[in-house]
């Protein structure tokens, strides 16, 4: 017989950790959902050519699969969502959103500069990347997934976000 205190401890541990310790998969499911939701709050240039809305992921990231899953059922501006995995900076030209994983092998500056020149909305997930010029940066505040929005970057790529969205964001000017 295990002592009762053991179960109590176990319950405590489970209860205590459950909500906070998310698995990586859950985290990226959420991020992917957020990225899709973000697309709804950005006033896209309606003249984006083609029938595809391309979300690029530079360097491998666990976000790829959940994004793919979303792409199968959803659309942005009635365009088909296409998820592309990039390994070279030159390949990002045609995407509209570029997700920059934490552990990207590229220098953020290079990515951001290139993205700015191509009017690509960058979404990163690294503490401080918002300040460094990533348009949107996922951060965890009080164990909750939040995002920073670099309004300058947003402005420089010619995009506007809805006020509702900006209200929820940590604004970096």
């Amino acid at each position: 017989m295990l002592p009762k205190i053991f179960f109590l401890n176990l319950m405590f541990i489970l209860a205590g950790f459950g909500p906070f310790v998310q698995s990586e998969a859950q985290e990226y499911d959420l991020k992917a959902a957020y990225i899709f939701n973000i697309t709804k709050f950005i006033y896209w240039d309606s003249t984006i050519p083609g029938n595809e809305f391309i979300i690029g992921v530079i360097d491998p990231s666990p976000i790829y699969e959940p994004l793919e899953k979303i792409a199968k059922t959803k659309t942005v501006m009635d365009k088909k969502i296409i998820i592309k995995q990039f390994t070279k900076l030159e390949e990002i030209d045609n995407c509209t959103i570029l997700f920059i994983p934490k552990n990207t092998s590229f220098s953020l500056k290079e990515i951001v500069d290139k993205a700015k020149s191509k009017k690509i909305l960058t979404i990163s997930e690294h503490e401080g990347y918002g300040k460094k010029g990533s348009a949107i940066n996922f951060v965890t505040i009080e164990e909750k997934l939040k995002f920073e929005v670099n309004t300058k970057t947003l402005e420089s790529i010619g995009l506007k976000a809805s006020a509702q969205f900006l209200k929820l964001a940590v604004i970096i000017e």
Binding site: L30, Y34, N37, Q164, F165, K167, L168
Partner: peptide, 15 residues
């Protein structure tokens, strides 16, 4: 309700 769209989508109960 319209103001609640973003908080729900981004799971911001506080907001």
């Amino acid at each position: 309700g319209d103001n609640l769209i973003a908080p729900i989508l981004f799971n911001d109960q506080d907001a």
